[in-house]
């Protein structure tokens, strides 16, 4: 049985890139909080189905939304169908993200565009699509999954850093625009987190982290869950760093 949603209006939550890692942990957490969760995924249908099954087995409700976040038309249709079945999307977690690393002199236009389109431009389009119904509902929570790379340097990730720094800037400005309608927009900035996304990075950088370990998807999801909760109503435009002290 899911928890009460604390008087929030009828609606649902949408997590992009929800088939694994941080996105999957967020989807599970929001379902525990009583939300019907739409899990967006691009290619990992098995992963997404497994997350949905876990949620259903725990007594929650999940639905799958296949599609590349860069495909604006498909996502627009997905929103419309979610709205008719589950009510407005009142929680949007822009989590889908990719990397395509290379030192700047060798970083091609394609790698630049793909990363910026997916991590930043798609998040903006999702945000724009979600906002009007949220404004009307007088309730909304948008959480953007940024990174400590952006505010901090990481050689080989100029495209990724630009996209994540952009996401943080977008978060601040959109937050200010809609704050008086009880719609909050925040970001989390994870450091090194143990997921498939970072499996090729682990190892030598652990020594630099004050916590002396990588974070878990659940530790990041807990922060997103808080920012998405009714209790976080006076937190907006901020970026919560979740990095074991790395950028302290």
């Amino acid at each position: 049985m899911s928890r009460e949603r604390n008087g929030t209006p009828e609606g649902c939550a949408l997590v992009t890139g929800g088939s694994r890692g941080i996105g999957a942990a967020v989807a599970r957490g929001l379902a525990e909080d009583g939300w019907t969760v739409a899990i967006n995924y691009r290619s990992d249908s098995d992963g997404a189905a497994a997350v949905a099954k876990e949620i259903a087995d725990a007594g929650g409700t999940a639905t799958l939304v296949e599609g590349d976040v860069r495909d604006a038309d498909a996502l627009n249709e997905a929103f419309t169908s979610l709205e008719s079945e589950h009510g407005p999307v009142l929680i949007l977690v822009n989590n889908a993200g990719i990397r395509d690393d290379g030192l700047s002199p060798q970083l091609g236009d394609d790698a630049w565009e793909r990363v910026v389109d997916t991590n930043l431009s798609a998040a903006f389009r999702m945000t724009r699509r979600a906002l009007r119904p949220m404004l009307r509902a007088r309730y909304g929570r948008i959480v953007n999954v940024a990174s400590i790379v952006g505010p901090r340097a990481n050689a080989g990730q100029a495209n990724y850093a630009a996209s994540k720094a952009g996401l943080i800037g977008m978060t601040r400005t959109v937050a200010v625009e809609v704050a008086r309608r009880n719609v909050t927009v925040n970001a989390v900035a994870p450091g090194l987190v143990e997921t498939k996304f970072t499996e090729d990075l682990n190892g030598d950088s652990l020594g630099e982290i004050p916590a002396r370990r990588a974070g878990t998807p659940e530790e990041v999801a807990a922060c997103i869950r808080f920012l998405a909760s009714p209790e976080a109503s006076y937190v907006t435009g901020t970026t919560l760093t979740v990095d074991g002290g790395l950028s302290a």
Partner: peptide, 13 residues
């Protein structure tokens, strides 16, 4: 302007 955005959504709905 934000009120007008909301009005636009009301009209669309």
């Amino acid at each position: 302007s934000l009120d007008l955005v909301e009005l636009a959504q009301i009209v669309e709905d």
